[in-house]
């Protein structure tokens, strides 16, 4: 008897998982369909780019600077031990651009942007604002979802590039604490150690991070069930799922980059 109920429970869970995957797939497909059909909500898209990009700059700047500084300070003793201190600028630049800045910036955006979208849309759903939009013959999916996903897909890579730059400056600050190197020779060493190929996969990866950050936030908010409790749940699950997705995408991106390059 107990075995039968366990079996039923597992089947129920599997059914719910597949249903959720199906709903998420349809949501993604609807995004691409709405994206390419007019009218385009340019004004709202620009507003979201400003809110998500410009308003996230202070947080990304502080985090990027600290990342560069700490990475330099932590790596320096080991490199000194092997007499490879001169490799420090190149190592800091490569690590930041290839891996640390994209992942950490995306995680910050998951916490700040994805949860914000989840809470905002969830609250609009619960208070019938999305229904009000639909009743007034405005497509809420296009106005609320498409604009936000486009904004995160465009803004996260730009924030990552900015974090790269600020992180490299943080690295310079770290080296300057215990060493004597000019900014120009530091920058030259960083640039010499980098290939163009280092930036491209990281930027493409960041676009995917941005897409999933927006998509997950919108999906959770747009599908919030009625009740104020669901607003908190939408924001919370947006952060958790977006953060997990970032690591999965990162893992896949590394494998694909290794295969191609």
């Amino acid at each position: 008897m107990e075995e039968v109920s366990k079996h039923t429970f597992v089947l129920q869970q599997l059914r719910e998982l597949f249903l959720a995957m199906g709903k998420a797939t349809l949501f993604n497909l609807r995004f691409f369909r709405e994206l390419f059909f007019p009218p385009t909500e340019w004004r709202e898209t620009l507003k979201q780019c400003y809110l998500m990009g410009w308003k996230s700059l202070p947080l990304v700047s502080i985090t990027g600077f600290i990342m560069g500084l700490v990475l330099t300070l932590q790596s320096r003793p080991t490199l000194v031990e092997f007499g490879a201190e001169s490799w420090l600028p190149g190592m800091v630049g490569t690590s930041l651009i290839r891996e640390i800045a994209p992942v950490v910036t995306a995680l910050i955006c998951a916490g700040k942007i994805s949860s914000g979208i989840g809470a905002e849309l969830g609250s609009m759903k619960v208070t019938e604002q999305i229904d009000a939009m639909e009743v007034s013959a405005v497509n809420p999916f296009k106005y609320l979802v498409v604009t936000r996903i486009v904004a995160t897909t465009l803004m996260v890579p730009i924030l990552v590039l900015f974090a790269d730059l600020v992180g490299i400056l943080g690295g310079f600050a770290g080296i300057s604490i215990k060493g004597d190197i000019s900014l120009i020779s530091y920058a030259t060493k960083v640039i010499e150690s980098l290939d163009f190929i280092d930036i491209i996969p990281a930027t493409i990866k960041s676009c995917f991070f941005g897409y999933f950050i927006g998509m997950i936030g919108c999906y959770q908010g747009f599908n919030a069930s009625n009740g104020t409790e669901s607003v908190g749940r939408a924001a919370n699950s947006a952060v958790v799922i977006a953060s997990l997705s970032i690591f999965i995408i990162d893992m896949l991106a590394v494998q694909i980059t290794d295969l191609i390059i």
């Binding site: 019938e128 009000a132 009743v135 013959a137």
Partner: peptide, 20 residues
């Protein structure tokens, strides 16, 4: 449906004003 919706006004129980 959208063309017809423009001829119908709907007052929601919660008023449903756009908060932002």
């Amino acid at each position: 449906l959208n063309e017809t919706r423009l001829k119908i006004g709907f007052l929601f129980q919660s008023a449903a004003l756009y908060d932002s």
